[in-house]
Simulated scan of single mutants.
Amino acid sequence: MNSRTNNFSPAAFDMTQKPATRENSAEGLSPCAACAVRDLSLCNVLDEDELSMLASIVTSLEVPARAPIIDEGESADYLFNVTGGAVKLFKLLADGRRQITGFLFPGDFLGIAMNETYAYSAEAVSPVKLCRFPRAKLENMLDRFPHLEKRLLGMASNELAQAQDQMLLLGRKTAKEKLCSFLVSLARRAERRGDEPGPIYVPMSRADIGDYLGLTTETVSRTFTNLKRDGIIRLREGGMVEIPDFDHLEELADGI
C-alpha cells in the first residue's frame, strides 16, 4: 500500500436537541441515479427495475455537522445508508461518559436494530448525506428480494467484525499501538471506498479518537506528538497527517 495522509479537525459534542435535517427530492428523478457510492452500498445487488422500486421508498437527507441522527432507545423506525460525510456511533454510560463504538463513511449502513429501539446513538461528525428507508417498507422489500437481504446480512457481518477489532484495540494494545491501528484502519477503509492514494479526510477530533480508543484526549495528543517526533507521521497545515511509510505504521500497529 502506498503512503497515506489523514486530516483531523475538531468536532464538538452536543446532544441537547436534534436539529432539523433537510430532505431532498427531485420529482421524476431517482435518488439512486447519480449515487457515487452505489457500488459500496446496500443497493449494489439490485437491477434497474428493482432499484427503481427501492428508490420509491427512499428519502435523501442532509444532516449538519454535530447533529444527532438517531438516539439510543428511540423507536427504530428507519434505516440509513451513508452516502457522504462521516458518522460516529456511541453509547452513553450511566455516569454520563461516552464510548464511541465506531465511525461510518460513505457506503456504510446505519440503524440495524435487533429489537424495536436503537441500541446506540449516531451523530454527524461532518456534514452528512443519507438515504433514509422506512423500516417496515424495507423489510417488505427484503422479503421480495432475497439477494437484498443477503447483502444486508453481509453488511451486518462486517459491522460485527469491526466490533471484534474494537475489542482487541481496547483490551490488548498500548496507546501507540491503538493510534497506529486506528490510522491503518482509516487508510484501509478509504482504499476500499476507492479513494485515491494521498490525503484522507477524517474529521474526528482528538476527543472523539480518545473516546473510540479508550484513551484520554491528552494521551491521544501526546501520542500524535511522539509519532511526529519519531518520523512516523508528519503533521501538515490544516490538520493533515502524512504517513511516509505505511508498512512501518502497520508494524507498529501490530506491536512489532
Rank of each mutant, 00 (worst) to 15 (best):
R151S: 13
L153W: 06
L153G: 08
G154L: 03
G154R: 05
M155K: 14
M155P: 03
A156R: 02
A156L: 12
S157A: 15
S157E: 13
S157N: 13
N158W: 03
E159A: 13
E159W: 05
E159M: 10
L160A: 09
L160G: 03
A161Q: 08
Q162G: 06
A163P: 02
A163W: 10
Q164L: 15
Q164Y: 11
Q164K: 11
D165S: 13
D165Y: 04
M167A: 14
L168Y: 07
L168M: 11
L168W: 06
L170K: 12
L170C: 09
G171Y: 08
G171Q: 13
R172V: 06
R172D: 04
R172N: 04
R172M: 07
K173P: 00
T174L: 04
T174Q: 04
T174V: 05
T174W: 05
A175I: 00
A175N: 01
A175Y: 00
A175V: 03
K176F: 01
E177M: 15
E177Q: 15
E177K: 02
E177P: 01
L179K: 09
L179C: 09
L179D: 07
C180W: 06
C180N: 07
S181V: 01
S181G: 15
S181K: 01
F182S: 05
L183H: 03
L183F: 14
V184N: 08
V184F: 09
L186A: 10
L186D: 00
L186P: 00
L186M: 09
A187Q: 10
A187V: 12
A187K: 02
R188I: 13
R188P: 00
R189P: 00
A190K: 03
A190P: 03
A190S: 14
A190E: 07
E191S: 13
E191K: 07
E191W: 02
E191C: 02
R192F: 08
R193Q: 15
R193M: 15
G194D: 07
D195Y: 11
D195G: 13
E196A: 15
E196F: 07
G198W: 09
G198Y: 11
P199A: 14
I200Q: 10
I200L: 15
